[in-house]
């Protein structure tokens, strides 16, 4: 793909998150939301390497992955509004939504817990010979969870078609990575599992796509898992309402210079800039239409609250 489609997809994610934040402020989103503003190049680059049938597992900061995987925007807004969405009927909301129709195993609001589950999707691919791969995204902080360690070693010994994408935004909630780990790069830990690990510029969709494609190829041909560490930055708080007092002065302003959309904008000549403007306008319309459609989705019928506990 590359430009301008990557730009469109990243702009869609950004606009979605910005609109979501406004809806949150307006009281239309009941629960907590974790936005991925600034990190859009990671899901967009990674999903470029995927095909239908490949499973994706993400975290609560996973709206970008859902959108990059083609999950319906109206469904996403409606789900987060607590409405009876076609995704999860309002039972999951922002941090735990999923969509089997788009092979989106889903978000997870338990740090690291998606990695064992993604390992299971990889097991199915391997045992059924489907040729599919399983990609899972986590944050830098999640690398310190036992569930990630267990799953990586398990996937390694079983040679499963798993790709772990670590979105290193240098914060676990409000804590700096320097205070959390004693390695310079998290990808160094790959060696401990006997796996290849790479560090890439997570604000460059091409760099992410190239590294993930290499890992995906390796997985598809039966050579097992890989770790891709994508260096990136959050432009917003950990969650809605995070005042970010813990971030040093100037850090966010500097990040705004490095973030993927601004980067493309800066490098654009007049012709491309005009196209990007047009894309922005189209994306804004598309997002607004999704919000309008989501507002028309009814709230779940309280009489159904006990449905679906069991098959």
């Amino acid at each position: 793909m590359g430009l301008p489609e990557d730009y469109r997809l990243m702009a869609r994610i950004r606009r979605f998150e910005e609109r979501l934040a406004a809806l949150k402020d307006a009281g239309e989103i009941p629960g907590s939301i974790h936005l991925c503003n600034g990190q859009e190049a990671v899901p967009v680059g990674a999903c470029r390497a995927l095909r239908d049938g490949d499973h994706v597992t993400a975290t609560y900061r996973g709206h970008g992955w859902a959108i990059a995987r083609g999950v319906d925007l109206t469904g996403l807004f409606a789900e987060m509004m607590g409405r009876d969405s076609a995704l999860c009927g309002g039972r999951a909301a922002s941090p735990y939504l999923s969509d089997p129709g788009r092979w989106f195993v889903g978000e997870n609001s338990i740090v690291g817990a998606g990695v064992p589950i993604a390992t299971g999707a990889a097991l199915t691919a391997q045992r059924t010979g489907s040729g599919a791969v399983s990609v899972v995204s986590i944050g830098d902080g999640a690398m310190n969870q036992g569930n990630v360690h267990e799953a990586l070693n398990l996937a390694a010994v079983l040679d499963l078609p798993l790709v772990l994408v670590v979105e290193n935004n240098v914060y676990s909630e409000m804590s700096r990575i320097e205070d959390m780990v004693r390695v310079r790069q998290l990808a160094e830990r790959a060696a401990g599992y006997g796996l290849p690990g790479r560090v890439v510029d997570g604000n460059d969709p091409d760099a992410v796509a190239e590294a993930v494609a290499e890992a995906v190829d390796r997985a598809r041909e039966g050579s097992g898992p890989s770790i891709v560490e994508a260096m990136t930055e959050r432009l917003v708080g950990h969650y809605s309402g995070d005042a970010q007092h813990y971030r040093p002065a100037g850090e966010i302003a500097a990040a705004r210079e490095r973030e993927p959309l601004a980067r493309i904008r800066r490098a654009a000549d007049a012709g491309l800039a005009a196209r990007l403007d047009a894309i922005d306008a189209e994306v804004a319309d598309e997002i607004e239409a999704a919000v309008t459609a989501a507002r028309a989705v009814s709230y779940p019928d309280p009489a159904t609250a006990k449905e679906h506990v069991y098959v």
């Binding site: 499973h55 089997p100 990695v115 097991l123 569930n147």
Partner: peptide, 19 residues
Amino acid sequence: PISETGFLGMALGAAMTGL
């Protein structure tokens, strides 16, 4: 491996996707 969290999670992901 001795990884109950790892392999129960793997069981879930495998069950969700067809095994």
